[in-house]
Design a protein around this nucleic acid. Structure first.
Length: 554
RNA sequence: GCCCCGGUAGCUCAGUUGGAUAGAGCACCGGAUUUCUAAUCCGGGGGUCACAGGUUCGAAUCCUGUCCGGGGUACCA
């Protein structure tokens, strides 16, 4: 099938596409090797769908593309294609299709009929997905960067769920490594400070205020007689911090299904087993007291250390065992959400798995770039070690869930994110999230107002009378929702949805400016109620996928 | 040095995976409210898509090189 992926879901496009192919047959033109497009042009003046078929054929046919286009056009016109109002040819050789308004108008009925399932292609039905995100070790409160991770991961999960995937949200952590030892030492040191005993704060210790709070809690619960290296320092620190992390995530309305501890792969012998499997493939060797992974033999740039000369493994080894485990759990799709600092880490993991004969095509790694906070027009400096950072909690307390979630996904994850606190905090029309939510609230208010005037929404209306320019634009945009969702599924990039909803809100507000819904014209009122009702459905569906509320009133 | 991401309006960013005349928001200027919510709408100015080549009917988009910013870089994850 030469059809472009995006267009597959739209059966009407598929139909037109086939009609073009048939015309080629009729005209005795050989179908081109490369695929041709059929997509919405940027400008409405070119119609609703345009194809580049004749430009692609021009070379092999040695014929002017406009002439080819006209031949195809004439053949198509003769055949009288359903739902096509007009076909035009424009330079340099596009064939443009104008779709009948009724085709779009009828979509409103579909939206109302299918509600928040409108446009679902249920591609994930019967399939499972695992989305691993956040995965911060419990060494301190979640930061702004983790926030971006959390919101991307959860929204991606929502996108998958909307397509009927069964999604497991998974949090992976390590409470046994060096980081945690330093954490315990930091708490221990603060503990002895508080009870006026000599202590030594570790060189790379965690300097945040929260460490002192944990030490205070330990004094409360365990008294002042703890000795150095007591395991309580670690266990309490982990317990308290994990509680904090879960609370922060809860405030973002994020709930994990599984927490997986790196330690479990040591306990189960999985790591041992992985090592011996790799050894059998001659991918492991010893050098300078360390154990190395021979990445170079499978196309890697350089060999990597698996076990340090201190006897402690690097992250690669358990990470590979963990991913192997996820593969064995046989998900149809495995998604990892990593920060840009992890860019270099995953290729080794994947290559080791491949070397063991495991398929990794269904593992999708999403890398997001860093977040910079902007306050008063200036970058907020952040140092993790000194705990000189704004936490995710601070952000949530200051801004609330809707704004935080929206700001984290409104930009492409490939781009560095400038999080403008002043804009986010602004409760006025400058803030893009309100623009969106206001559209929804406005619709709710009109519906309410209509009820006060004796109009009740009913699906029994005639959509063909919705012929105002702003009505048609709104209707056409809503018809595009399935394509947007399909793109979001393929790319796993939530900002597509955010951008789409912004345009939808724009088109609605424009409609509102020119068309009054509740009028004395009963038939028109019912039709327009149908229109705004379906707009409300798309808006609230999109917002709920983004994890943002759709207020009835503002 | 090498690898990854980015460079588009004064600022922050989109750009449907190669299409036609480059798009928003903010900021700036001017207008609209006896109205279903003005958290809105309408109009205006503002561009060498970092730069230079290449690929082709056609490039912000793909390839090569250069410059700038961010991240990583072999026993920290």
């Amino acid at each position: 099938m030469l059809l472009k992926r995006n267009t597959l879901i739209n059966s009407f496009k598929k139909y037109i596409y086939q009609e073009i192919v048939k015309s080629l047959n009729d005209l005795d033109i050989k179908r081109p090797e490369s695929e041709f497009s059929l997509s919405s042009p940027k400008h409405d003046s070119f119609g609703d769908l345009s194809s580049n078929i004749s430009m692609i054929l021009a070379k092999s046919l040695k014929e002017n593309p406009i002439d080819i286009a006209n031949r195809i056009k004439n053949n198509l016109i003769e055949k009288k294609i359903d739902n096509i109002e007009d076909i035009t040819v424009t330079p340099p050789g596009f064939i443009n299709f104008v779709i009948k308004a009724t085709f779009y108008q009828n979509q409103i009925k579909s939206i109302i009929k299918y509600g928040n399932s409108f446009g679902k292609d249920r591609i994930g039905k019967g399939k499972s997905a695992n989305v691993e995100f956040v995965s911060a070790n419990p060494t301190g409160p979640l930061t702004v960067g983790h926030g971006r991770n959390a919101v991307i991961g959860d929204t991606v999960s929502n996108i998958l769920e909307w397509h009927d995937y069964k999604v497991t949200r998974e949090y992976y952590y390590n409470d046994a490594g060096k980081q945690m030892r330093v954490l315990a030492k930091s708490v221990e040191s603060r503990y002895f400070d508080l009870i006026n005993k000599p202590s030594e704060f570790p060189e790379d210790g965690y300097q945040g205020e929260y460490i002192i709070d944990i030490a205070k809690e330990i004094i409360q619960s365990f008294g002042k007689n703890l000795h150095k290296n007591d395991s309580v320092f670690l266990s309490e620190a982990e317990r308290v911090i994990f509680k904090q992390i879960e609370d922060s995530l809860k405030k973002l309305n994020i709930k994990f299904d599984t927490f997986t501890n790196e330690k479990s792969f040591y306990d189960s012998g999985a790591i041992e087993k992985l090592l011996s499997e790799l050894k059998d493939k001659d991918l492991i060797y010893e050098k300078e007291g360390a154990t190395w992974y021979r990445a170079t033999s499978i196309g890697g740039k350089q060999d990597k250390v698996y076990i340090k000369s201190t006897g402690e493994p690097t992250y690669r080894l358990p990470d590979t065992a963990y991913h192997k485990d996820k593969i064995i759990r046989s998900y149809d799709l495995i998604v990892d959400v990593f920060g840009a600092d992890h860019t270099d880490t995953y290729p080794d993991v994947l290559s080791a798995l491949n070397a063991l004969g495991l398929k990794t095509d269904h593992i999708k790694i999403l890398i997001y770039q860093f977040v910079t906070l902007i306050r008063d027009g200036e970058k907020v400096k952040m140092s993790t070690r000194k705990a000189d950072f704004v936490t995710l909690d601070d952000l949530l307390n200051e801004l609330g869930i809707d704004i935080v979630r929206y700001f984290f996904i409104m930009r492409s994850m490939n781009s560095h994110l400038d999080f403008d606190l002043d804009l986010a905090k602004d409760q006025s029309d400058k803030n893009p999230i309100f623009y969106l939510q206001y559209a929804h609230a406005r619709i709710c208010n009109i519906i309410k107002h209509g009820e006060g005037q004796g109009f009740k929404f009913s699906d029994n209306f005639d959509p063909s009378i919705l012929n105002d320019e702003n009505e048609l634009k709104l209707i056409k945009l809503m018809s595009n929702f399935p394509i947007i969702m399909h793109t979001a599924l393929e790319t796993l990039e939530p900002q597509n949805i955010a951008n789409y909803l912004q345009s939808l809100a724009t088109y609605f507000h424009k409609f509102y400016g020119t068309c009054k819904v509740i009028t004395k014209n009963k038939e028109l009122t019912q039709a327009r109620l149908g229109l705004i009702f379906s707009t409300k459905i798309i808006l609230s569906t999109g917002l709920s996928i983004l994890g943002i509320s759709a207020p009835e009133k503002m």
